[in-house]
């Protein structure tokens, strides 16, 4: 099978890769670019563990083809911290114990950051619905929701 050459931007860096027509963006990120922070929990768009931003919009990278990233911008969990400075969400997830096993955490952080980027003052209900596509089996969501709300307040205070 001939492979497709794709040129794209991942976490601010220009990258190119060859992928098969049925490789998903998640496959490419994990298997070719060694960005294994995005996880495969279902490969069917139901768990959100593979959540990334594509041109600033949240997508399940398991539902996007690798070839579709041509000419676009991909942001993954690996690009969330600025050098050694964590995003406030990352910092608060650690401080407020918003993870247990942590496998859902990359997807949830990417999704929560996207929420706060355009909704700096979300209600609890908004956070719960925004994250409804990100499954977490360990925490019961309680500490995750609190960490997102606390981070939003903290970022508003700092702004």
């Amino acid at each position: 099978m001939s492979r497709i050459h794709v040129t794209t931007t991942v976490n601010g860096d220009a990258v190119d890769y060859l992928c098969e027509a049925d490789d998903t963006l998640l496959d490419v990120l994990r298997d070719q670019l060694d960005l294994t922070g995005s996880k495969e929990g279902c490969a069917s768009g139901d768990c959100g563990a593979c959540t990334v931003e594509l041109d600033g919009r949240l997508v399940c990278s398991c539902l996007v083809l690798g070839a579709e990233a041509e000419g676009r911008t991909v942001e993954t969990i690996e690009g969330m911290a600025n050098g050694d400075v964590l995003h406030p969400l990352q910092k608060n997830f650690i401080e407020k114990a918003a993870l247990q096993c942590g496998v859902c955490t990359p997807g949830i952080l990417v999704a929560a950051k996207n929420l706060l980027d355009h909704t700096p003052d979300p209600s609890e209900e908004e956070v719960r619905y925004w994250l409804a596509g990100n499954l977490c089996r360990c925490t019961g969501y309680d500490k995750i929701i609190r960490a997102v709300l606390d981070t939003a307040a903290e970022m508003r205070g700092a702004a």
Binding site: G37, I77, Q90, L99, L109
Partner: peptide, 23 residues
């Protein structure tokens, strides 16, 4: 007390290696 866990940073940055993350 409620200290920060030692594996926290790895897990919020995507660095932590789970079962499928090794090659």
């Amino acid at each position: 007390t409620r200290v920060a866990r030692p594996d926290g940073l790895d897990k919020v940055t995507g660095r932590a290696r789970y079962g499928a993350d090794m090659s």
